[in-house]
Design a protein around this nucleic acid. Structure first.
Lengths: 211, 211
DNA sequence: TAGATTGTTAATCGATTAACAATC
DNA sequence: TAGATTGTTAATCGATTAACAATC
């Protein structure tokens, strides 16, 4: 078992990937750690350490081979690994996520939506049908789903999380504006847009206080 | 000038707020640092330190006064401070964000949308009109807008960011899946959903490798 | 070759956690 | 009062940054 990369380093990898894709489009053959670091306003040593930590090596004097490094990142981050997901909550945000085609290239496939609003059950978002939440356990048994995406009001989120974990879900990507409590063997990543805004607003205020 | 709270601590404050709101709804009068820490799976010393860093004090033996602490957080985080914003990009995500009513209680008001698609210009999302991007500089002159929200494809994001900064915007909350380069006096917070998914997927894989 | 850039060890920095006295 | 919880100092831990030898 290889040792895991640190969380802060892992969160930087997608940025490296974005930059490397742009460099490739621009026709660059090599890119240096200093170039990457400058774009992200971080230290170049950190970039080299992160790259080393995922087992990629560059060429002294030249830099990192753009095409090679891009492939290495894709492989390390598992973009070719297909992951099936269900999306729970067919509200504004849920529908926007279901329609967004930018996730597919990272291996995420949203197969179906679930909601408890009778008006929504049966409609289709692109080619994805909206089912009743009560059908979810059955659906999970018949399909090889590894991820549940939660796009629900905070008030229902914990209840629904408990329900889908009971049904066998081990990975939850939650957009509900609340902290969820889950068993130890369930991975949860919370993407709380309201919390993100609050932090952002605070950074804005701090900045203007400094002047 | 008071010293700024650390970024990690600041990012935890919204979670504290969520928990305190739930405690208030549940009718609790006091809440201990240990109770908060347990829900977030963090250390209780850290909770006390964070609370101390925003200048709130509890009562030894009892804990933190739920109602008081909630008010203190609201005040510290500036929820009563109204912030006007424009949203650029009236695609799926942009429209979902414009329709979402959960931001208002934190002081965020999205006043108008901007897009360059002639088919979208003129339509209304709730009561918010979609204008042409070319009208943005004029609009900013006539309205007291402090924030721009970017919900655009990565390919246009830098170009649009440059344009709105030129027009006077000093704070950008970006949902574009790319790292943007901005001048030092502009605050930018990137909410890259694709990057978030990549990180999440990686955490899922690490977990399953550990078993 | 000389110079630029990587790879890596050591030093620093800051956040987290442990310990414990103060307090109601 | 005794016990529980805060507030705070000290210790630990891990991430970031500095320094520099190795390399093409």
């Amino acid at each position: 078992m290889e040792k895991n990369i640190s969380i802060p380093a892992l969160r930087r990898l997608p940025s490296y990937y974005n930059i490397v894709c742009l460099a490739l489009d621009a026709g660059d053959k090599y890119i240096s750690s200093a170039t990457i670091a400058k774009q992200l306003d971080i230290d170049d040593t950190q970039v080299r350490k992160d790259i080393a930590s995922i087992g990629y090596v560059g060429k002294p004097k030249v830099g990192f081979d753009v095409n090679d490094f891009k492939n290495h990142l894709e492989n390390y981050l598992g973009f070719n690994k297909q992951r099936k997901a269900v999306l729970i909550g067919a509200g504004n945000l849920g529908i926007a996520l279901a329609r967004y085609d930018g996730f597919q290239k990272y291996g995420l496939n949203i197969d179906a939506l679930f909601d408890n609003d009778p008006l929504k059950i049966g409609i289709k978002i692109l080619d994805k049908e909206v089912f009743s939440i009560s059908y979810l356990p059955e659906y999970l048994k018949q399909n090889d789903i590894s991820i549940a995406i939660l796009a629900l009001p905070g008030a229902y989120a914990q209840e629904v999380a408990d329900f889908i974990i009971e049904a066998g879900i081990k990975a939850i990507w939650s957009f509900a504006p609340t902290s969820l409590i889950v068993p130890n063997d369930v991975v949860i990543e919370t993407q709380d847009l309201a919390a993100s805004f609050i932090t952002f607003a605070q950074l804005v205020d701090q900045k203007s206080n400094k002047d």
